[in-house]
Computed example of a mutant assay.
Amino acid sequence: MEAVFAELAADLAPVYRRRDLRANGVLYLRGLLMPGVAGNCWSIAEAVGLDRPYRLHHLLERAHWEEDTARNVVRAFLTRHLGADGGVLIFDETGQAKKGKKTAAVGRQYSGTMGRVENVIVAVSL
């Protein structure tokens, strides 16, 4: 599994112009792929051995890197590795109730989880 992760990290290397951003991107990706880790910077930072999440915050909020290129690289990687005969991808949409309006992507919409129109954020998992 480590060899496959190293391949993905190498494929993503050109996305980042600086070495420190590349290292932070690899840490972030490694944390996202760890089982049982919540998808927030504090949890990911702790899981990958960082004391604080500030490097990951910088990567996501202020650093300059090519998001479209990253998406294309990951798509090509998945096509190579998940393109086996009989393979399937399953999409799952889940709504999570939110009381305020300050969270990104929150809006009044129908949530199958709650069975009604509510203030929710919808996440799609693959």
Rank of each mutant, 00 (worst) to 15 (best):
V117K: 07
L78Y: 07
W65R: 02
A23Y: 08
P53V: 12
A104H: 09
E46W: 01
D68V: 12
L78N: 05
A13Y: 15
L8S: 05
A105M: 14
F77I: 06
G112E: 08
N40A: 13
L82M: 06
A63I: 10
W42H: 08
R80I: 06
V73K: 00
R52I: 02
R116N: 04
V4Q: 13
A38D: 10
Y110F: 10
A3H: 15
A47N: 06
V48E: 02
L126A: 09
F91Y: 12
R108Q: 12
V88E: 01
E7A: 09
R75M: 07
E118R: 03
V120W: 07
D68A: 09
T113F: 00
W65F: 11
S111D: 00
G95P: 00
M1D: 08
M1E: 13
R80G: 06
G112S: 04
V120R: 07
E66G: 10
C41E: 15
K99T: 15
V122F: 14
G86V: 11
T69L: 15
T69Y: 11
R108W: 13
R75Q: 09
G115R: 07
D85S: 06
G100Y: 05
R116M: 05
I121Y: 01
G87H: 13
G87P: 01
D85A: 12
R18H: 12
G95N: 01
G39L: 00
A45L: 01
R80Q: 02
T113S: 01
R55W: 07
A84K: 05
V117P: 02
C41K: 10
G100D: 06
G107Q: 15
V73Y: 03
A6F: 10
A123G: 11
M114A: 06
D51P: 06
S125H: 04
L12Y: 08
E66V: 06
L50H: 08
V88D: 03
V15G: 02
W42M: 03
N40C: 08
A76M: 13
D20K: 11
V4H: 10
F91Q: 04
G115P: 00
G86N: 10
E118T: 04
I90W: 12
S43P: 02
R30T: 11
V117A: 00
N40D: 15
E118A: 01
R75L: 15
Y16Q: 07
V106A: 03
V26W: 05
L59A: 02
V74W: 00
K98S: 06
M114E: 09
A23E: 15
Y28Q: 00
G36V: 12
L12T: 08
Y110K: 04
D85T: 05
Y110A: 01
G83D: 04
